[in-house]
């Protein structure tokens, strides 16, 4: 139960941070950065997952 609560809290915090980031980019007239942000999020998730796989990790640096 505690773990679920903790995960929910973390997800809420992160959602709040992403909202703040998007709000800031829009306020600064840099809304064009948002698509790049989405791409970076996607790539970083992929990289993080791949780096956690022992057989794949040594090749990540070479590929990317």
């Amino acid at each position: 139960m505690n773990r679920i609560l903790s995960s929910t809290r973390t997800a809420n915090e992160r959602f709040r941070t992403v909202k703040e980031l998007f709000r800031m980019l829009r306020a600064n007239g840099r809304w064009w950065v948002m698509p790049f942000f989405v791409i970076v999020v996607f790539l970083s998730i992929v990289l993080t997952v791949l780096q956690a796989i022992p057989y794949v990790a040594p090749f990540i640096y070479t590929i990317f």
Binding site: T17, L47, F64
Partner: peptide
């Protein structure tokens, strides 16, 4: 690459 690997898993979520 360095930014992606250091900010998304870690630095961006400093409040939490």
């Amino acid at each position: 690459r360095r930014t992606a690997l250091s900010w998304f898993p870690d630095k961006l979520w400093v409040r939490g």
